[in-house]
Nucleic acid binder design. Structure first.
Lengths: 146, 146
DNA sequence: TAAATAAAAGACAAATTTATCCTTTATACA
DNA sequence: TGTATAAAGGATAAATTTGTCTTTTATTTA
């Protein structure tokens, strides 16, 4: 469904929001330890998100990543689109380039409603909401150690 | 959503069903021309499907691929599972290995209903049904030439 | 202003997916 | 029975995705 990059990206933003109290910044090392993701690779994904102003960052001492109030309110679809593009919501299920309403692939209409559901779900879910779920201990972002 | 392999595989079986009249066999060359797919690569995918008894094949003169009556009635999920496995229906949206009802990722429940919808759709759609849609000219399997 | 810190960025490597080519095997039919 | 045909299978290559390492840039603070 999502690429590995996107999975890491989503987990990272959720962790940042869940971990930074009062605008405190979170370092890439801490982020990756807490979401079980490769550090340098995830750093590059966060670079994409900062360039797209979905995440904020600060270099130097006490630097790190954080989300301002506006960014916390962003929907998950912003993260997904920045990393994986819009193919998941707009592309043909069978990979046809010219699939459309007037020139549909055999699963076009059935696929369309699923695509729309995915899109709707990602539009209606905010980063903050998912961060709160982590804060409250209602969900996790990494495999539990035994 | 689906891998390229799976897209080719689905398009191939639909074409075979739509093109083979009275159990006639369809060659890999004809298949690939009509679904815009690389021949040798698609051949390997059809090998997977024949090994899984989703498609039938015959070597030699007048050989090729075809689907018997039972196979035509198979649901699309058989094709997808044979090629891409069950990850799409069972895997975690954020890629967590131990995501579950009792140890959910932040989007677990929202994702679950979408996964189920995809599964249901693939279970309810038969290869034959899609082949008929092509036969009737109601849908296409390749980009139209201008 | 210099040192320490942490993100940004560039270069490179591994792994996986996608694609191609060549040989082998099975089948039909002349 | 031999030849043509077409799928099966093996080996290899290209492309993309994922992952790592090193250098550069910006910022804080002593």
């Amino acid at each position: 469904m999502f690429s590995k990059s996107c999975e890491y990206g989503i987990r990272a933003v959720i962790y940042i929001v869940s971990a930074s109290k009062n605008g405190e910044r979170v370092g890439i090392g801490e982020i990756c330890q807490n979401i079980d993701a490769p550090e340098h690779f995830t750093a590059k994904i966060l670079q994409i998100l900062t360039r797209n102003r979905i995440v904020s960052s600060q270099k130097g001492v006490h630097g790190g990543f954080y989300l301002d109030d506006y960014q916390k309110g962003l929907a998950l679809i912003e993260v997904v689109t920045a990393i994986d593009g819009k193919t998941l919501f707009t592309g043909c299920g069978l990979g046809l380039k010219q699939c459309s309403e007037t020139n549909p692939c055999p699963i076009h209409s059935k696929f369309k409603s699923i695509r729309n559901d995915i899109k709707k779900m990602l539009e209606q879910t905010t980063i903050e909401e998912l961060g709160n779920s982590i804060k409250k201990g209602k969900s996790v972002l990494k495999t539990l150690k035994i």
